[in-house]
Amino acid sequence: MYLPDFEYYAPATLSEACDLLEKLGPEAKVFAGGTDVLSKMKQELLFPKAIVSLKNLGGLSEIRLGNNNDVIIGAKATHNNLIDSPVLQEKYPSLCNAARQMANNQVRNIGTVGGNIVNAVPSADLPPLLIALGAKIKLVGATGERVLPLEDFFTGPNKSVIEQDEILTEFIIEEQPFTGSTYIKFALRRSGALAVASVAAAVAMEGNVCRKARIVLGAVAPTPLRAKKAEEMLTGKEITDELLEEAGSAASKESKPISDIRGSEEYRRDLVRVLTGRALRKAINEGHV
């Protein structure tokens, strides 16, 4: 395998990077860890004429507490940075566990959170839980910046609302009402396998009553998908096994899986049902795991 030729830029500042992206146009590709970009280029699935590396941009890999107990995750943080982050281990260990399920240790040392999002792969491991936790993202462009819910970011496989000149710089997880959250991935091998189906759940419990629930499905639609009907079924209700099963069935109906080499549509739909119940139970009973 080989990498086709490309121009390489490593701007020193964010604004320089955005200007460069604007100038270079759609054939330029932002490059953070590069694990996804390089493997796609080697497989001739991606042919960028230019690569704009973020390696010289400082401060984008920090994971810290911001105002109002917001958790701020720099987009250049690697998956292993997430796993090792004391802030996350304290606030959202579920995110550490979700990060741990991506690829393998070597890739987690290089692959960034930002990359995992911007690639917009439907089976990516971080988006479902980040959406469930209501994460917002900051996009910085040549002419300004914007903050939007991650939920509104994806538009299709490998497609999102990001503009040519924009760079994803950070995630903001505001203080949540949720008492528990989790991500369950179903894959065909215990490591190094893409999700066949995945479910993230976040719940705000008061005793046995669910005040709020978010359920986000992965790998079963063109984008990560909120199972809103299932969420509504739970809101304000006392949790019973039956209710969880109904929520699972509702989520299953809301999913829009395709058949591919990893699993049939029918199988995925049923996995959503099972995993939704399991994720909810886990988030309800075990907190942020």
């Binding site: 390089l38 070597q106 890739v107 040392n109 290089i110």
Partner: peptide
């Protein structure tokens, strides 16, 4: 696999420039 600043990484997915 090699260690990059002590961390194991796949050297097939890293640009020499990086």
């Amino acid at each position: 696999t090699v260690l990059l600043d002590g961390k194991p990484v796949n050297s097939c997915l890293i640009l020499a420039l990086e």
